[in-house]
Design a protein around this nucleic acid. Structure first.
Length: 436
RNA sequence: GGAGAGGUGGCUGAGUGGUCGAAAGCGGCUUCCUGCUAAGAAGUUGAACCUGCUUUAAACGGGUUCCGAGGGUUCGAAUCCCUCCCUCUCCGCCA
């Protein structure tokens, strides 16, 4: 949420910045409604003032008997217009806040112009693209290697739900633990939040009210399945005033994530790239405005270190204004190499939200040297999407014989197993690996 | 799910119709004293929004709202009434 006062005082500037998103957002109507609201509100307040004056007279007992009836009549009269005005005021106030909640964040000045992902600016590449003759897609490899069972996923749920079998279940868990442990070493405090949250949380981090149909909602309870751990973790501190000494607060969290993927029909229908339920390790930071740019860079770097640890080739892109998410004012995407697609695919999105989420969720901090509390800045990023990491490992480390070499950092998490081989049955493997 | 208790400022907690934006304590801040490492004294200290002054901001002045949320009674509600939400205790159920 943007600051209404800032919009009022810098209307043209905000308007121009929003135009860069190419999504038809405007604050012009908001300015008009806000003006109306303030007019009605001040009228309503002066009626209130008169009413308070009258009851003050009663309080001090300085009211003559005949004046009493007169004053009571006056408040009765005030009451009528008071109620009409009050209603009008409430409606306008509601309208202003609804409009405010529907306006996206303003792109930061370093964000390049552009319409869509084609205009994103590549920042750098890392790693060597493996030379694989006729690379197989992860979903073929994975079925051979007893990693995925797509049919049974659909049977027990519906499309875009996948069962991780044997090797897949263990590899997914190994990746998750590797990520969490790595982040913990860099100072992120692990949390494991609820995956069902109330509506206030969804508004707080900006999913609602704008994107109502994108999320799973429980019919009989006002609860939503989280689309990302960003929601519960950021809302951990909703309606709180933190001390500057505590900052930056850094959390990492594993959660499953649930997305309806409405509107993405036909995209990535095969494989493990786009699921209704997927696992992710998320990084979330809370910091002062002064440090937010720097903390954003550091967080993005922390996500990159996971890819480097796994030896997966990737690139970093800076999203253009048109491709920026609703809440973000600046965002880097990390894209990992997928040999079968011969291109980089998003595996992490690291965003700086400025005070946009903090205003919605009312998260503030008190400065060291006192003074008024200020809105905090929030930053988060995937560190990383686990399923896509697993898919990328299968594809990048596939061997000519159909086996997959496990990245060294994961081997300890797999009880010493170094290769996924099609011929193994898992029962035997487990017995071998864990027999001690 | 059943029964009971309760939701007040950063925290603890008093407050059953006006003297309450709210006692007291803790914490925070300012000053002073002492001087030896931790205490003493005095003062000060809730939030949001609108508005005036000011070049802007801060500070300051004026105003409105806020004692879980919403509604009602009343000239006037933290206080009375209704609805909802949440927390705690006991019982039931249960990984």
């Amino acid at each position: 949420m943007l600051d209404i006062r800032h919009i009022r005082e810098n209307t043209d500037q905000v308007e121009a910045a929003l135009q860069r998103r190419n999504a038809g957002f405007s604050v012009k109507e908001l300015i008009v409604v806000d003006e109306q609201y303030r007019t009605v509100n001040s009228q309503w307040e002066s009626l209130n003032r008169r009413r308070n004056e009258i009851s003050e007279m009663f309080k001090t007992g300085k009211v003559a008997a005949e004046q009493k009836a007169e004053l009571q009549a006056e408040t009765k009269k005030i009451k009528e217009s008071y109620e009409t005005l009050g209603k009008e005021k409430d409606e306008l106030e509601k309208k202003v806040s609804e409009m405010l909640l529907a306006i996206p964040n303003v792109p930061e000045s370093s964000v390049p112009d552009g319409v869509d992902e084609n205009d994103n600016a590549e920042q750098h590449r890392w790693g060597e693209i493996p030379k694989i003759a006729d690379p197989k897609p992860h979903y073929e490899l994975g079925v051979e290697l007893n990693v995925f069972d797509f049919e049974r996923g659909v049977k027990i749920s519906e499309s875009r739900f996948t069962v991780l079998m044997a090797n897949g279940a263990r590899l997914e868990r190994a990746i998750m633990n590797y990520m969490l442990d790595s982040h913990a070493k860099r100072g992120y405090l692990e949390v494991f939040p609820p995956v069902m949250v109330n509506r206030d949380c969804m508004i707080g981090t900006g999913q609602l009210p704008k994107f109502e149909g994108d999320f799973y909602k429980c019919a009989d309870d006002e609860l939503y399945l989280i689309p990302t751990a960003e929601v519960p973790v950021t809302n951990l501190y909703r309606e709180e005033v933190l001390d500057e000494e505590q900052l930056p607060i850094m959390h990492c969290a594993y959660t499953p994530n649930f997305r309806r993927e409405a509107g993405s029909a036909g995209k990535d229908t095969r494989g493990y790239i786009r699921q209704h339920q997927f696992n992710k390790v998320e990084l979330v930071k809370f910091c002062t405005p002064e440090n937010s740019a720097q903390e954003h860079e550091k967080l993005t770097r922390d996500a990159e270190l996971i890819l480097e640890g796994l030896n997966l080739p990737y690139r970093r892109v800076l999203l253009c204004a048109g491709d920026l998410g609703f809440c973000a004012r600046k965002c880097y995407d990390l894209e990992v190499w997928f040999p079968s697609q011969n291109k980089y695919r998003e595996i992490s999105s690291c965003s700086n939200f400025g005070d946009f989420q903090a205003r919605r969720a009312n998260i503030k901090y008190k400065g060291k040297d006192g003074g008024k509390s200020r809105f905090i800045h929030t930053i988060n990023g995937s560190g990383l999407a686990i399923g896509r990491t697993l898919a990328a490992i299968l594809e990048n480390f596939q061997q000519p014989d159909g086996s997959v070499k496990i990245p060294q950092v994961l081997v300890p998490y797999l009880g010493g197993q170094e290769v996924l081989e099609p011929k193994h049955t898992l029962g035997k493997l487990d017995a071998r690996v864990f027999a001690e």
